[in-house]
Amino acid sequence: MHANFLDPFQSRPSLVHSLDARVKVVLVVAFILTSALTPTGAWPIYVMLIAVIFSAEIVSELGLAFYMKRALLAIPFVLAALPVLFTIPGPSLLSLPFGLQLTQPGLERFISVALKSWISIQAAVLLASTTPFPDILVALRALRLPRLLVAIIGLMWRYLFVMVDETLRLLRARSARSATAANPALRPGGKLTWRARVAGGMAGSLFLRSLERSDRIYNAMLARGYDGEIHSLPVPAVPPSAWAALTFGLLLLAFIIAIGRLIY
């Protein structure tokens, strides 16, 4: 049982994949910011943003269907925005029972929020699935994240798969013994608090084993000359083509923001 399925990176020989990770991180965040700055109900701007992200997705060679599936993740949260349909005052479009009035500004606000989150999550999926994690780490370092934090996140990623494997094995061992009695009249499952305590025991044992493992890792690091300082190779310069992509991307986003401001 291996948790490699967790790694969202999908290798392809595409232009999006080969773009410098630092540039990609900046562009993705700028894109999400652009979408956040788009006024409510500015539909042409949303169309432009969708066109931009779709284009990037097509060029990444992973297929639009892949992105659409991953983008569904944000759907459950849309529930949180449902009430604005009825609470923002404005001309009523539809009267519902319980005195609820579906208003036009409410509908506009709701659709805008849903569109923003759908557009933004696609950009985040694009980043994670076209950039190997070590490159993202280098990008975080280049963007002046504290070295210590980057080192911790790097080590976390390394052991993430080990820990998830361990957790899956624990869960499997539990379900292998979750059985019914020979007497079919007995109700299986135990009490709720007991089930919770068992899950808690698994969490506790995972925690203790991790603490012991971190001791071994620390010793192995010391054995290779670790002195608490994080040494890393210097980050290579951003190549001119990446600078060009960055400039083009930022100009495009600035243009989209400007149109939004100008028209609305």
Binding site: L186, W194, G201
Partner: peptide, 27 residues
């Protein structure tokens, strides 16, 4: 089913709790 790593199978505070898991689950 006895797994290769006993650590995966022993996730309760005491030996009693671990051995009792199956019977308690059965009700």
């Amino acid at each position: 089913l006895v797994f290769q790593s006993p650590d995966d199978q022993l996730f309760s505070p005491t030996v009693f709790d671990d051995v009792a898991f199956g019977p308690i689950y059965q009700g």
